[in-house]
Write a protein that binds this DNA or RNA. Structure first.
Lengths: 339, 339
DNA sequence: TTGAAAGCGCTAACAG
DNA sequence: CTGTTAGCGCTTTCAA
């Protein structure tokens, strides 16, 4: 089965490339090409398994019908799930998706953005490092369609789909308070990410509204690339007699998983001695010992919405209106909270 | 910052497009273009942030420097991890990757293959549904570079990177036997996938070699799309007085997770009453109650190897030699086995 | 060393 | 209704 081109089918059928192209792009009627001719073309193309060269098509059209997706790490189940929904939605709308992981590295992210632009993606969905303000601004200036997910730039007007990190985190903390925990610690990562700041703020706000104090001893911020090794000391420190916390809020699922490992190693009883709760979850959080409570993020909505907003921008070109969605998280209470 | 093209920089510098193109592709020396001219070009390109249009380049070159990845489901942590490693390795070798999920659907998979071919990917990495033999054969005939991962077609000679499903599964089962379990059940999915068959075979072989019998009561094969709802009965059946199994081998991580859920609901003590072990694992299997033993797959090696083999084929074009790797799994023993 | 020109495969005015 | 023609942006012979 050898490759067949547009011109081949034109030649074979004694027609012009134009006619064939038109028909194959469903513009036959519109250009008043006889039903009969159309059928001949379609049949022939079908029978010979004609497959247009998308590079040629893209070059000519100035678009690729491809969406670029940049996430910190595709092997993080959270982003993998989002990617899946993005892919599904994109497919139904006629778009492919190329993805890349930035590894939280600003320079890499910038590279990826340009690499994808070079490849003529029609739009970009980015879970940003939040360290490439200039590049994001450039995209905006250039009127290039893009939507930020999970992480946005609070002081730039862009499309974005994020979750209510503040609210979700506050909820989690309030739940612990409601259940009698008074000495609640936070384990987070050192980060400028707004999402992370908001989660911390939600936590702090809940405490403050309850008239409780926050001090360094109960607020740990670990190096995002060394949290596993730093976790032990952090946990040890928190559960020691000095601070003696009775609950911990973790701002990400991997922190919660890692934290629980250390708690077990230290033989701290969860939840009787220390309750824990996590922002976002891993697939098996309900099976863990004890099952971990969580503020669950609506990954499907994030993915679907992002694609819809993006494709709308790509096709309608009404990029002027920023489309900003803040989705709610869902509080799932499990045994790790002690209730 | 407006877009700049090859011809712009040629015009600006009073050179020909050829010269500029040559230099930009590192073929300046080879074509004896003066160092000075080269520097002028490079500097100008750099300063003006020249970005070649990859569609044009690809069209001209007949290749895209893009690898297509087709997996059953990118949100399965197993494939997400592989994807991550594929992406990393591909990037270092100068390739991008487009991915899509087939959802285990043969027709979809075929669609995706062609869609990617249309987009002129230079090669394909496929974790196949194993239901598209004809298409795979066509790829082979066409001498198109591709490598199968995770699942291969046992009766077709192709490149592939898979794991030793039989051995891994046999190991798991033998471990249970060694620890005194005599009535070991299997929970798998109804599937023609060789990987799944091999896992079952490994289990059966271990039993048979021990002189034990296999009967329908201890061998459950669930519908891959309805395993969650079917799991309850399967488990109930196995632990009932009639069959009274004392251990279960799960052939996938999601089956293990789901099975453990049901065991808990039925108040079956793991591992004292029933030990469990899983082929492949979820991120939190060590935190689960009890921590689940597993045959861990080397996702990094799978990804890296696949890319290396593929790129080698793409670039060296020595597609004649099939490169077939069967990697070993790693048995991780945790509490769910009772030791 | 350099440049003109053809061509990759497809689309889209425009003229007939 | 159909065909001619001119690109899309880049690479690459081939001749100068």
């Amino acid at each position: 089965m050898k490759k067949i081109f547009l011109k081949d089918i034109a030649a074979e059928l004694n027609l012009s490339k134009t006619a064939v192209s038109l028909v194959l792009n469903n513009r036959g009627d519109e250009n008043k090409i006889s039903k009969e001719t159309q059928k001949r073309i379609l049949d022939f193309a079908q029978k010979n398994n004609y497959r247009p060269n998308q590079m040629a098509r893209g070059l000519s059209l100035g678009k690729s019908e491809t969406i670029g997706l940049i996430v910190p790490n595709i092997s993080d189940i959270f982003y993998a799930r989002i990617a899946h929904h993005i892919e599904l939605r994109a497919k139904t709308l006629g778009y492919n998706v190329v993805f890349s992981s930035s590894n939280e590295d600003a320079k890499m992210e910038k590279e990826l953005m340009y690499s994808m632009l070079n490849r003529q993606v029609d739009g970009l969905i980015i879970a940003s490092t939040q360290k490439n303000k200039d590049e994001i601004l450039k995209l905006r200036e250039a009127n290039f369609p893009f939507v930020l997910i999970d992480r946005h730039y609070p002081d730039i007007k862009t499309n974005y789909v994020i979750v209510d990190n503040f609210g979700g985190s506050k909820n989690m903390t309030q739940h612990l308070l409601k259940n009698g925990r008074r000495n609640i610690g936070l384990v987070s990562i050192k980060s400028e990410l707004d999402a992370i700041l908001q989660r911390r703020l939600g936590y702090e706000t809940a405490l403050v509204e309850e008239g409780l104090e926050i001090n360094a001893g109960i607020l740990k911020e670990l190096d995002p690339f060394a949290y596993k090794s730093e976790m032990k000391d952090a946990i040890k420190d928190m559960v020691s007699g000095l601070t003696g916390i009775d609950a911990i809020v973790f701002t990400t699922h991997y922190l919660a998983a890692s934290g629980l490992r250390e708690l077990k190693l230290l033989d701290v009883k969860v939840p009787s001695e220390v309750a824990i709760i996590s922002f976002d979850e891993l697939g098996a959080f309900d099976l863990v010992d004890p099952p971990i409570s969580t503020s669950k993020q609506p990954v499907d909505d994030i993915g679907n919405l992002a694609v819809e907003i993006l494709v709308n921008d790509i096709e309608k070109k009404n990029i002027k209106i920023e489309n900003q969605s803040i989705l709610q998280t869902q509080l799932l209470i499990r045994k790790s909270c002690g209730v």
